[in-house]
Simulated scan of single mutants.
Amino acid sequence: MDKPYKINGGVYLVLNPTIDEPILLAKLKSALSGGIKVVQIWNNWQPGADKRALIEKIAAICKPHQVPLLINQDWTLLRDVPALDGIHFDAVPASLLQIKDAVNRPFICGITCSGSLDTVAWAEDNKLDYVSFCSMFPSASAGSCDIVTPLTVTRARVLTPMPFFVAGGITPQNLIGLKKLTPFDGIAVISGIMSADNPEQQVKQFKAALSADTTQHATQNN
């Protein structure tokens, strides 16, 4: 049985479930209209939150766009809520095999690598779907991440062909410059989209920067 979706790159949105629900869902709808490719729910819940109910509301918005919905860290939610398509780990889990046995269905799996090439190698060995590097720039929403150098991402590309996402302080402006320094397939964003007055337009700006021809631009400047 195949996994529900294939991750290739693009703009990856991380949702903070503590945001007021009507605002969260309205901004998610707007962002999806802009062309989001992946959505993750951050493991940061209000006390007493009805996690399943909120996940199912988010999933109902994502499904018509054929956008996979991932949960951060808590694999028991992946096991218990069929609306979820996968999980994103912040670090190597104790036993991925145990998690796969417990979930008992195909699912998407990604991991944050920070600056560790050992984690990249683990992701390749365990056939994960993508890796994410955080943080490329200083960022309040990625405050727990170490700063990752472009050279680290370049070295990681030798270890695996899987899709790379970069995260942490990414803007449409610094994204173009980063593309000139290292290879990656997509970006993961939290506040850069959800704090925007018009998430749809902000996503389109990220997409334009992500697809910009930096080779031609660099040649013109030489």
Rank of each mutant, 00 (worst) to 15 (best):
T171I: 06
P150K: 01
R105G: 10
G169R: 01
N174F: 11
D125Q: 15
V189K: 12
S116I: 02
G110A: 01
S114R: 13
K179N: 09
I99V: 14
C145M: 08
A123Y: 00
F107I: 12
I111L: 13
V120P: 02
T152K: 01
V131C: 13
V189M: 09
S144A: 12
V166R: 03
I170F: 01
I108V: 10
S116E: 14
V103K: 06
V103N: 09
T171D: 04
S135I: 05
E124K: 15
S144P: 00
L175N: 11
D146V: 12
S114W: 12
L128A: 01
P172T: 09
T171V: 08
S141L: 06
K127T: 07
M136G: 08
F133D: 07
G186H: 00
S114Q: 12
G168D: 02
R157H: 03
N126R: 07
P183T: 03
V153Q: 04
W122D: 01
V158P: 02
N126L: 04
P183Y: 04
P106F: 10
V166N: 05
P138S: 12
K179S: 05
V148N: 04
D146E: 14
G168F: 02
G110I: 00
S191I: 08
T149Y: 10
T149D: 09
V158D: 14
L159E: 03
F107T: 02
G110D: 03
P183W: 08
N104T: 13
T171R: 11
F165G: 02
I111M: 08
G143Q: 12
I176R: 13
I99A: 01
C109F: 04
S116A: 09
S132K: 01
K180R: 13
M136F: 10
T152R: 00
F184M: 11
F107E: 05
C134F: 06
G115P: 11
G192D: 01
K180N: 07
G143N: 11
T182R: 01
S141A: 14
S144Y: 14
F164Q: 00
F165K: 02
I108N: 05
K180Y: 06
L117M: 06
V166L: 10
M136W: 05
I108C: 08
D185V: 07
V166W: 01
P183K: 02
S139P: 11
G169C: 08
P150F: 12
F133G: 09
W122G: 03
V189D: 07
P150A: 05
P172N: 05
T149S: 15
D129M: 13
A142T: 11
C145Y: 12
P163W: 07
D185H: 14
L151T: 13
